[in-house]
Computed example of a mutant assay.
Amino acid sequence: MNRTEILQSLTTPLGAPAYAPTVARFTDREYLNIVYRTDAEALRAVVPEPLTFHEPLVRFEVMKMGEVTSFGPYVEAGQAIPVRFGEERGEYLHAMYLNNFPATAAGREASAYPKVMGEPALRVDHAALVGTLDYGAERVATATMGYKHFPMDLGEAEAQITVPTYMLKIIPGYHHRPRVAELVRTRITDIAVKEAHTAPARLQLFEHALAPLADLPVREVVSASHIVTDLTLAGIEPVHDYLEES
Results as ranks from 00 to 15, higher is better:
residue 233 L to N: 13
residue 117 M to N: 08
residue 93 L to P: 00
residue 112 A to E: 04
residue 103 A to H: 07
residue 225 S to E: 05
residue 207 E to M: 08
residue 157 A to Y: 00
residue 77 A to E: 09
residue 179 R to Q: 10
residue 157 A to H: 03
residue 218 V to F: 05
residue 145 M to H: 00
residue 200 P to G: 09
residue 47 V to M: 03
residue 162 T to Q: 08
residue 150 F to W: 12
residue 75 V to S: 08
residue 7 L to P: 01
residue 112 A to T: 06
residue 186 T to Q: 08
residue 235 G to S: 14
residue 140 V to T: 05
residue 70 S to M: 15
residue 51 L to A: 08
residue 146 G to E: 07
residue 160 Q to W: 07
residue 116 V to R: 10
residue 21 P to S: 09
residue 243 L to F: 08
residue 149 H to T: 12
residue 61 E to A: 11
residue 185 R to Y: 11
residue 13 P to F: 07
residue 60 F to M: 06
residue 62 V to F: 00
residue 106 A to V: 03
residue 143 A to D: 00
residue 102 P to R: 13
residue 127 A to C: 13
residue 210 L to S: 15
residue 2 N to Y: 06
residue 133 L to D: 01
residue 21 P to N: 14
residue 24 A to D: 13
residue 227 I to V: 12
residue 22 T to C: 09
residue 89 R to T: 15
residue 8 Q to L: 14
residue 166 Y to R: 00
residue 95 A to S: 15
residue 79 Q to T: 12
residue 196 A to S: 05
residue 196 A to Q: 06
residue 164 P to D: 07
residue 78 G to D: 03
residue 70 S to A: 15
residue 230 D to H: 10
residue 179 R to V: 09
residue 233 L to Y: 11
residue 178 P to K: 04
residue 214 A to I: 08
residue 151 P to H: 07
residue 93 L to Y: 04
residue 170 I to S: 06
residue 4 T to A: 13
residue 22 T to H: 12
residue 11 T to V: 13
residue 152 M to T: 10
residue 157 A to L: 04
residue 184 V to W: 06
residue 170 I to G: 06
residue 127 A to Y: 11
residue 31 Y to W: 13
residue 1 M to C: 13
residue 52 T to H: 02
residue 238 P to T: 10
residue 42 A to G: 05
residue 53 F to C: 07
residue 126 H to D: 12
residue 204 Q to F: 10
residue 9 S to D: 09
residue 99 N to V: 05
residue 191 I to W: 02
residue 22 T to I: 14
residue 73 P to H: 07
residue 159 A to K: 14
residue 49 E to T: 10
residue 190 D to H: 12
residue 141 A to I: 05
residue 10 L to K: 11
residue 233 L to M: 15
residue 72 G to K: 07
residue 70 S to F: 09
residue 125 D to I: 10
residue 177 R to Q: 14
residue 215 D to M: 12
residue 219 R to L: 08
residue 76 E to S: 14
residue 49 E to D: 12
residue 16 A to P: 05
residue 192 A to W: 13
